[in-house]
Each structure stands twice: as C-alpha cells, then as structure tokens.
Design a protein around this nucleic acid. Structure first.
Length: 834
RNA sequence: GCGAAAGUGGCGGAACUGGCAGACGCGCCGGACUUAGGAUCCGGUGGGGCAACCCAUGGGGGUUCGACUCCCCCCUUUCGCACCA
C-alpha cells in the first residue's frame, strides 16, 4: 500500500504532458475540432478561486473533448493592459511592463501547478507590441471605413482615475473600478461606430440558442431598440423647427408642451430675446452642478423651466409651450420630446408639478375611463382630428405616413446602444495610431509604421493627466501626408479593445503580416464553448460580437457570431460576498494546492455546486473529496497487479459482476453526457463516486492484506474493465491521479490522449426493470418485471405480489377503473375513491 | 418601476422530456477493526407514527391518472437596467 503523494505525482505528470506536448493544437485541424475558451485573466499577480473555478470547468470540458477524439484548441493568455499596472508603477516605482511581466510569470506558474491542459505555445499578452500593433491596424481599417471617428462629446469623467469612462463603466453614477463619483466633461474622443451593427447585434440574439437566456435578455435590453417617429415642431417666431422622437405618435393630439434636454443645442438661439432667459440660464447652471449619479437617477425630482417660447403642433396646429426639463437626456433620440401628460407617467408628473394641461386622446377599448396617466396601447384615438377612432397601432401608421408626406416627420428606429468611446487618457494601453498636423488635419499612421510603440521615457508621478503626454519623443511626430511636424495622439485604447478579438489571435499567434490568417479563423471558429463570469455579459461580449462582425466585413474569415455556446459560471463567494482583495475575503488557491493537491482542489470546486450557480466557499466539504481521491487510489493500488493481467470480460459473469459492469458502463454514459451536453460537472463527479462505492462493494479491501481479495478470473476481468472506466471518467476532473492510475493499471501512453470509450449498449440495458405501482397517483409499491413487459404482464405481477395484490385489489372492492401505463417505468391504477 | 434567475433535509446540492422527491457529498448517529484514532471499512440518517400509513420541494389556487417540474396570484432573495421619450 502506497500513499497518494499528490505533490510528486502532480509535478511528474505536468512535466510529462509538457515534454510530450500533449495539448498542442494543430494549426489546421482535420476532422472534428473543439475550441474551448475561458476568459483570459488580468495579470494581477495571483490567481484566485474565481479563476480556478472558471478554468477547472473549461479544463474538464477540454480534456473530455480531446479524449472524444476532437482536435482541441485550448489556449491561455493575458489581458495585460490596464490601470492597476500604472498604479503599481506609481506606488512602487516599477515600470508597468516589469510589474506586468513578473505577474504573468507568477500566474503562469500557478496555472501550471493546477495542471490545466493549455497549449502554452499559443500564449498571448495584450501589452506586447506584437499583439497591440493589430489593435492599431484594426483601428486604421475602421477609420478608413468610417467606423472610427473623432467627436466632441460630453463624457463621463472619473476624477480619481483621471480618465474617460464609457457609459457601460459608470455604475449608478460611480466609476466601475474605483467607485468615485463620476462627473461630466466635454472632450474630443475617439469612437467606434457600434451603432452601425445595432440591428445585426440585436437580430442575431434570436438565433443564439447556446447562450443563457439572461445574457440574451441583458443584451437586448442594452441595445434597446425602439420603433417610433421623428416629428418636427415649428418654432413660433422663426428659427429652425424642433425635432422630437416619439414611440407614441398616436398620442400627438394630447401633446401639451415640448421638453428639451438642458444640453439641447437649440437652447441658446431659443433664449435670445426671450424674457425668460435669465431664469432658464440659472436653471441650466444649477443642472450642470448636479453630480452625474444624481442626474441619472430615476428617483430624482423632475424639474424644469419655461423658455418663454412656443412651438406649433403640426397635427393640431395648436400652440404648445417649450420647456427645458432635467429628465430629458441629450444622448437619446433628439434630446427633445413632445410631452403627453395623459399617456406618459413622467410627462404627467412634470405637468402636475407645473400646472400644465393634461388632455386625454386615447379611450380604452373596454369603455372605462381611467384617470391619467394611462399608457396602455389597447384602445382607440379620440379628439384626434381626422385620425380619431383608430386603434393605436393604426393611428401610428397613418400619422407617421401623414407626417412623412407633408415633410414634417418620418418613421425612425432608435437604439439605446451608443457608439463605443475608446479614448483613455492613460499610459498603459494601446496608443491610438493617429497624428495631428496643423496643415493636413488628423492623419492615420501608415500601416508600415505600426506598431506605434509605448515610449519608455515617461514618469509616473501619480499627479494625474496622461503620462504619455509628457513624453517629448512620443508626442513629436511627422505628418504622414506632408512630412511636416505633427503631434501624436496620446490617448490610448480602452482595454476592452484588447479582449474583443484575442481569441482569434490564439489561432495564429506568430503572424506578423496580419492579425491572423483567414484560414486559421475559418478552421477553428466559432468558439464551441466560452466560459466566463456573468460580469462580462454585456460589455465584453457585445464588443466581441461587434468586432467579429467588423472583421467578417473586412474579409478576415471570421463568423459574425464568435461564440456558439456560452457558459457564465457563478461567482465564488465567502461570507456572502464575492471574493476580492479589497474585501479581504480571499482564499489562496496556492494553499489549497499545497495542502490537498490540484486534483482535490479541482474536484472540490466542481463538485460543490453546478457551474452556473454562485458558490459559497466552505472547506467543510473538501475532506470528502480528499477521501474520495484516496479511495480511488487505494482501489487502484490494491488491484493494479491482479487486474493488469486480466483481459477483457468475455461473457456475463455472476450477478455481482454483471451489476458492476452495468454500473461502470452507465457511469461512462452519464459522465460523457454530463460533460459533453449538459455541463453538469457536479453530477458527473457524483456518478463517479457511485461507481467507486460499487467497486468497494464488489471487491472489499482487506487492510491486513497487501493484495486484493480472491477473485475468479472472470471477476478479475470485470474488475479490471471497471477500474479502467473509472480512471477514464476521472481524467477530466483529476487528471494527475488518473494518469498515475492509468499507468499503474499497465497502460502505456497518455490517458489524456487516450480515446474516450463508448459504453457497451448491451450493458446499458437491463433484462429486469422496476415498475413503480401507484394507486390514484400515490406510490403503493414496486414490482420487478422483464424489460419491455406490457401492461397485462405488469398487472399480473402486481396480482402475484403478496402485499401489493391485496392493496391494489382489496377483496370485495371494485377493480381499477383504468390504468395509466408507462413502459418500463410506472403503472398507475385509478380506482373509485371511497 | 422594467427585465431575468432562484427558493427542495442540519448544510452543499440531485431529480434531464410531467412518472419512486432528497442521488452524491458534508455533518451527525451506530457498528467493525484498534493501545488509540481526528485513519479505514460497513450500516443508518426529511418529519410524524415507529406497523400499516400520513405529511413534506417558499405560500395559496388550478390543470392532470400523476406536479419540485406546467398555468395563475402572492411572498422572499439575488442579479441586470433604471427618467430611453
């Protein structure tokens, strides 16, 4: 009896896998392939339990698919640009590159010790010029096609990080990273035109059956498509008309005022000569002071002020006052609305506060007359001039057409999805490859001059501002058009750019002519399974989809949708909160590996909960997994010598042996299905535990003997087969243990690359099945009958059953009125109730 | 407010297409082996009666021969969006 020394055994197999290049993926797979991808980590320095869980899930699937005979692509890399490196530089005086590279080295080592089956030859890191030059290349391609543009925008600004934040990075008014209150600022920014793909991004969601419903819902919500119409209201006293967007043009006869965003560009002109000018300007000033968080809140009191001007409703020709209101946001629609207090809650609230008219123009179909505001679309228009009496849908159609014909409006579709602002005023990111020439304007850096490399002569003072702007050598540039002096763009790209296409670079990581070859992309994508946290359900996954569509349109051979199946694993929590360094509730994977080994750690984290569910960390159960590993090891250790000599089982042996064979083959089928189809890794492990229990019953171990019990030759063959199956089932979850056991059982070659066996169909059948016997739906007993028995045969068995017979057919009572029979499963007898 | 998911023993969780609720593990109880065991093996373990049976999957209704599973209402929790016109 030898103990399972996890430390030496795990190290040994990690070395052998590496030496034999066991997980190298071919550049061009021939035959079935599987691309298993896990979200790449930010190299913070240490891996945490969230990583371990993510990668243990992916590794189990990857190893299983490899054994199933598929060419496997299972790469790993580093999302290595970003703010923490810069902060570390400020705090420790290290260059961000040194800090990052050293973290990568540490974390790579930690991942190796977990025994994950990665093809490390494809490793990428986004902070390396070989990688980010392609960010720059993509940017230039997009710029040429009008997909990248520069625009002055009121942006969200984090005063702490001193950088712009995308809308997506503002969480209830605070910076998503540092939580400080976000303010607004006008800045020239680079944008990517995600809006051009809004329709496709939305429409595809309906076809993405391999994604969790909640992620699809979040993305739909985020894209936020609304069908409606623009309507132009002429301004009384001249000037250009005010254009509003509405989804309820059918209520336009109830519009009693217009409301403009405080940021509306037409305001200045409207206010000229208006008596209300002073009051409006005071209001606007007060609005500007309000912090962003408050500004975005729905609970905020609705406030506004009359501009002193009027507009004309083009349908009713009525005069309506023009107001400025704080609840109108500039970046949706036109920044101006027609307010219909009778049929919109917000408009109603505002009208009530300021004593504005409320006019009902929709009558509910049921004849009721509810108090305003009611927003239902069930009903007909009333008091709507020639459009009265139509259903809301009809009215919308007719009115939109009317506006179009008369030239004061048109149908329009609006999206909540905004273009992606990618400019960041940081050092540690991809330089945006543009230069500014006084004569020629904004010019892209020629492709031959890529990459634009980050300079090293920068100081990280922590005083704010972009360190890049302080690098004279970097800022000074030549204009590609005229050759004159020019100034280089110092903004860098949002790190979400890096992660939007990295999974294609893995396929062709050394390519220095293109980001990747179209052949490689076509051969390996779409990704079969992508695993990561739900935190990326919107941003990263939306950008990755957008980028794939752009690359497809650039002719790079990528599919429009990059991911066939998405698994969002739950978070690892401690004390009800996600583990995080700042909360101080982390458990270091290193310590677990040291104490229990990688196999036990992996088994535990996979067994404790199904992958999608949050997992509350508790070590209470880990002893069970350690026991399990030892039990497996003892089985193998005790039986290896005798089992090694046995051939395959020839014929059904005794009942016990036959039962064991069936158990083994059922386990094999179940584990395969649980990993390959259902992704229920916890139940797969449970099934393997059952097989281990069955093996112990079949061949009890005697502590006083070094060898196993006395078994017949046939029993030995069955035992041998079952042990082989056990070890193979275990390979995706506890790969080191499995390899060691495999070799102990006398097999040559790596188990990791050994074909996954097919269960013997004969062993999945049973000649006898247990039928549940119910009376009026209540279980009253069970009978054993041959598989495939019909109803009569089962009834006969029930009659013969000593106990059941009298329960089901009590003397003197009527027999069953009818029976519901599910073959091989259940018989339900419906009898008259007493 | 809108949207999504979840609620099952002391605990983590099973039950896939409506068909034996509680697989598997933790914990606990008992036994075996032991100088000892916090090692190992075997058995028990939802509740009530301790037998037949009855009750039980957040609560209440419904559909069905049969509901953890489907439908309606409600409660709780978590997550996402939050004045989107």
């Amino acid at each position: 009896m030898t103990d399972f020394d996890h430390s030496s055994i795990e190290t040994k197999w990690q070395r052998i896998w590496e030496e034999q290049r066991a997980f190298r993926a071919p550049d061009r797979p021939e035959g079935p392939r599987f691309y298993c991808l896990e979200m790449l980590p930010y190299p913070s320095g240490r891996i945490h339990m969230g990583h371990v869980r993510n990668y243990a899930i992916g590794d189990a699937v990857a190893r299983y698919q490899l054994m199933k005979g598929r060419h496997l692509m299972h790469p790993m890399g580093w999302d290595s640009f970003g703010l923490p490196a810069e902060n570390a530089a400020i705090q420790r005086g290290l260059h961000p590159r040194e800090w990052t590279e050293s973290n990568i080295a540490d974390m790579r080592e930690q991942l190796r010790r977990m025994g994950f089956a990665y093809d490390w030859s494809r490793e990428i890191a986004s902070h390396r010029p070989e990688y980010y030059r392609w960010n720059q290349w993509f940017f230039i391609q997009m710029h040429q096609r009008g997909l990248a543009y520069r625009s002055l925008r009121r942006v969200n600004w984090c005063p702490q990080c001193e950088t712009v934040l995308a809308n997506e990075q503002v969480e209830s008014g605070a910076c998503w990273r540092c939580k400080s209150l976000v303010v607004q600022k006008d800045l020239e920014q680079w944008f990517l035109r995600t809006s051009r793909y809004a329709e496709e991004l939305l429409a595809d969601l309906d076809t993405m059956g391999g994604w969790p419903e909640r992620v699809l819902a979040m993305q739909r919500n985020w894209i936020g498509r609304s069908e409606g119409a623009f309507v132009d209201f002429a301004v009384e006293g001249g000037g250009p008309p005010l254009r509003v967007f509405t989804t309820r043009i059918d209520t336009i006869y109830g519009a009693t005022f217009l409301a403009l965003s405080p940021d509306h560009p037409a305001l200045a002109e409207l206010l000229e000569g208006s008596a209300a000018r002073g009051g409006v300007e005071a209001f606007l000033h007060a609005q500007k002071q309000a912090p962003v968080g408050e500004k975005l809140s729905a609970e905020r009191e609705k406030e506004g002020v009359f501009t002193g001007r009027h507009a004309v409703n083009p349908f009713s020709l009525e005069r309506v006052p023009i107001w400025v209101a704080n609840f109108i946001v500039m970046d949706y629609g036109t920044g101006a609305i027609m307010a219909v207090p009778a049929h919109d809650e917000r408009d109603f609230e505002f009208a009530t506060r300021y004593g504005l008219a409320v006019r009902t123009v929709i009558a509910p179909a049921d004849g009721s007359s509810p108090a305003p505001p009611f927003t239902s679309e069930e009903g007909r228009t009333v008091e709507s001039g020639p459009f009265s009496g139509l259903s809301c849908a009809q009215a919308r159609k007719a009115m939109t057409e009317h506006a179009r014909r008369l030239g004061f409006g048109e149908g329009s579709v609006q999206f909540r999805l905004k273009d992606w602002g990618i400019s960041r005023q940081r050092y540690w990111g991809t330089p945006i490859p543009m230069v500014y020439c006084a004569r020629c304007g904004v010019q892209p850096v020629p492709e031959s001059e890529l990459p634009v490399v980050l300079p090293t002569d920068v100081t990280f003072a922590g005083k704010g501002g972009n360190p890049l702007a302080g690098s004279a050598s970097f800022v000074k540039a030549r204009c590609p058009a005229c050759g004159g002096e020019a100034r280089r763009e110092t903004d860098t790209m949002d790190t979400f750019v890096d992660s939007s296409w990295y999974f294609y670079r893995y396929l062709d990581p050394a390519n220095d002519k293109a980001p990747f070859s179209p052949e490689a992309a076509a051969a390996w994508t779409p990704i079969d399974l992508y695993i990561g946290g739900i935190t990326h359900a919107i941003l990263h996954l939306m950008y990755a989809r957008f980028w794939s569509m752009v690359m497809r349109d650039l002719g790079l051979g990528t599919p429009g949708e990059p991911v066939t199946r998405l698994l969002c694993q739950g978070m690892v929590q401690l004390g009800g909160a996600t583990m995080s360094k700042s909360k101080g509730n982390v458990v270091a994977p290193d310590e677990m590996v040291e104490r229990y080994g990688a196999d036990v750690t992996r088994l535990f984290i996979l067994f404790a909960a199904p992958p999608e569910r949050d997992l509350e960390w508790s070590e209470a159960g880990i002893d069970g997994l350690q026991r399990f590993v030892r039990r497996v090891w003892r089985l193998v250790d005790a039986h290896a010598s005798e089992a090694a000599g046995a051939g395959p089982p020839r014929r059904p042996a005794g009942t016990a042996a036959l039962d064991l064979r069936r158990k083994a083959h059922r386990t094999l089928a179940r584990v395969g299905d649980d990993i390959g189809r259902r992704l229920h890794l916890n139940t797969a492990i449970a099934a393997i535990m059952e097989l281990v229990n069955a093996l112990y019953l079949f061949a009890p171990l005697d502590e006083n003997r070094s060898d196993g019990p006395d078994l017949s030759g046939e029993d030995r063959a069955v035992l041998r087969e079952s042990l082989d199956i056990l070890v193979q089932c275990l390979a995706p979850f506890a790969p080191h243990l499995a390899e060691e056991a495999w070799s102990r059982l006398g097999h040559a070659g790596l188990l990791a690359r050994h074909p996954w066996p097919e269960p013997d169909p004969a062993m999945l059948e049973r000649e006898e099945v247990t039928i549940v016997v119910q009376v009026n739906g209540k279980v009253r007993g069970k009978v054993a009958v041959p598989q495939g028995s019909d109803q009569e045969m089962v009834l006969e068995a029930v009659r013969r059953d000593a106990r059941l017979g009298s329960v089901v057919f009590p003397p003197g009572a009527e027999g069953p009125r009818r029976a519901v029979f599910v073959p091989d499963k259940l018989l339900n007898l419906v009898v008259a109730r007493p």
